[in-house]
Amino acid sequence: MKLSELQEWRERAARGISVRGEQKDWRIVVSMGTSGIAAGAREVMRALMDEIERQELENVEVALTGSLGMDDVEPVLRVERAGETIVYGNLDPDAARRIVTEHIRQGRKVERYVIGLPKEKE
């Protein structure tokens, strides 16, 4: 492997571009039912895609779904990776951008927006 190729490979890996090029590593499912839309899910979706574009992320698949049945905490989205699923709620565009940067790029959950974490024992 030439040095220039190695650099290219490193850059792609750093940006999270799948070097295998098949199945995407990450999947984001955005709840886009009536209550989600009314609460701002379209703007959340837009911020998400803007950030994916801005950070040149190739390894994220995004899907829309009807209501996830969590009307009280819309807008809601689900981040899935290798069998692990995190549900985020009460989102706004800024929260969506943070999920891309902190969770997907840096591997750190954005705790403030996580829904349904197991309750700690008192």
Binding site: V30, M32, R42, E43, M45, R46, M49, V62, A63, L64
Partner: peptide, 14 residues
Amino acid sequence: GDLKDTVFALCVGA
């Protein structure tokens, strides 16, 4: 309203 964002969300998300 924002017809552009509506179409964008749909064609990218589905």
